[in-house]
Amino acid sequence: MRPEVFKMIDRVVTIDPSLQKIHCQGLVPEESSIFEGHFPGYPIMPGVLLIEAMAQTTGWLVLARNRFNKMPFLATVKEAKLRTFVLPGQNLDLYSEILHEGSGFVVAKTQAMLEGKLICSAELTFRVLPWPEGKMKPVVMKVAEHVSFPLADFADA
């Protein structure tokens, strides 16, 4: 994980064949520039970045569901609960499950766990839109390779 550049996911662990669920992991680094301000002398992961990690987890699942033909953009965060501090060096297990896929949007329930213990959760809604003009899609596909996303199974050539 490199939270200072919003790389919150290290690895896609599993995607359920039914494309309803995903499991990802992200190791909170021992050092990052975000800890200079959050907080000086007491580094903890900002809650907004935990929500971002859950959003990115869900994002990989939505990309798999539409075979990288559209891009999910976070639209709504509901019922976000941040139950405990997350510290440098801790390895997060991130899970997301689709609650509903509508026309142009997806709603998902997502959680982060630490050694089996629930530490945060939220219900997230994404707009699912055509890729913007430019480099975004190839960049996202490159990131997919880095996080071991199974492109051969869940992306069109």
Binding site: A75, T76, H100, G102, S103, G104, F105, T125
Partner: peptide, 20 residues
């Protein structure tokens, strides 16, 4: 309207074709 569409989809068991 996304929230409304979600609730309508659930209540009626349909998928409003918002994109169309």
């Amino acid at each position: 309207f996304l929230d409304i569409a979600f609730a309508i989809d659930k209540a009626f068991g349909i998928k409003l074709p918002l994109e169309q």
